[in-house]
Design a protein around this nucleic acid. Structure first.
Lengths: 158, 158
DNA sequence: ACTAAAAGTTTACTATAGAAAAAATAGAGT
DNA sequence: ACTCTATTTTTTCTATAGTAAACTTTTAGT
């Protein structure tokens, strides 16, 4: 089984190849915000585990196995983004959260989240009902004592 | 900010103290399935960062800061368990999945998931409607070609 | 109070993942 | 074909988190 970090690389390589036809070390490094030396190391491991074929200094191509897994990883990532968006998570938090959790959910959970997204897509009333609950909680929060001090305290602690 | 691993320890220590009044090194090691030597090392770091006061060979107590954070971590863990349970994730996957993702979600996402749990709790019809979608997908899956071979192939690849 | 067993700690080691700097290679322009 | 520059690789280093084994302290039973 690939480690979380290996999955990040496979996913990103898949996306790059889809988008521009190839994935060079520097492209991958750029996309994942890591140094090229880290990419080289990981790519050597991915070759050894047969997710891709790597020829040093020349480039790499995904194997059948690598492509199949890459496709599923991208699907999972997109689904999780859609899920968080649907339930109203702020755009600025979505990418990091998905990045953090995507490698840690069973396919059972992913499938159930897929159902859930479908559930909301099918009927706008459901989204509206959820928004109502959020508004209601928001109004309750407004009536708390010392909200600013609370937030500051919590930030200091973490 | 505490690392994921630190959070695991704080959360578990909080639970142990809540349950039996104290948390010894061996209790923590047992609960987290790590060796006592790992616990000692982490507890020293948590003392240094003032989540708890640690006296070697004697024991430890959470500071105010440690207690406040521990409480929130337990709340978050429980909420995520409830969320996965609500959407129909199998019991056997829930613990691992929560363990995997709990340290990687923003409080914004946690709050939105809280709203979502409330949304389903408020009205059993919503849960029923979700179950209908799941049944529908399940029936579609039944009509696929070669499902057993598919599953085997995917398992080999990971 | 003594001593054996249980509990806890220290030290030296493992693996993963990433970074920095130095070395190697490839490819473009002449 | 040559050489310069950009890209890539190697090597050495970092940090986190965990383990194994040797060591120390505490505690319970006599």
């Amino acid at each position: 089984m690939p480690t979380p970090s290996m999955e990040d690389y496979i996913e990103q390589i898949y996306i790059l190849i889809e988008e521009k036809g190839y994935a060079r070390v520097s492209d991958i490094a750029e996309a994942l915000s890591v140094h090229p030396s880290s990419v080289t190391k990981m790519v050597q491991k991915l070759d050894k585990d047969e997710y891709l074929v790597y020829e040093k200094y020349r480039g790499l191509v995904l194997t059948t196995k690598g492509k199949k897994i890459g496709k599923r990883l991208v699907f999972r990532h997109d689904l999780l983004e859609q899920f968080l968006k649907t339930i109203g998570v702020k755009e600025e938090n979505i990418y990091n959260d998905v990045e953090g959790i995507e490698h840690h959910l069973s396919w059972d959970s992913i499938d159930r989240i897929g159902d859930l997204v479908q559930f909301f897509e099918e009927d706008q009333n459901r989204i509206d009902a959820l928004k109502d609950i959020q508004k209601q909680f928001f109004e309750e929060d407004q009536n708390r004592i010392d909200p600013i001090k609370e937030v500051q305290e919590l930030k200091e602690q973490e």
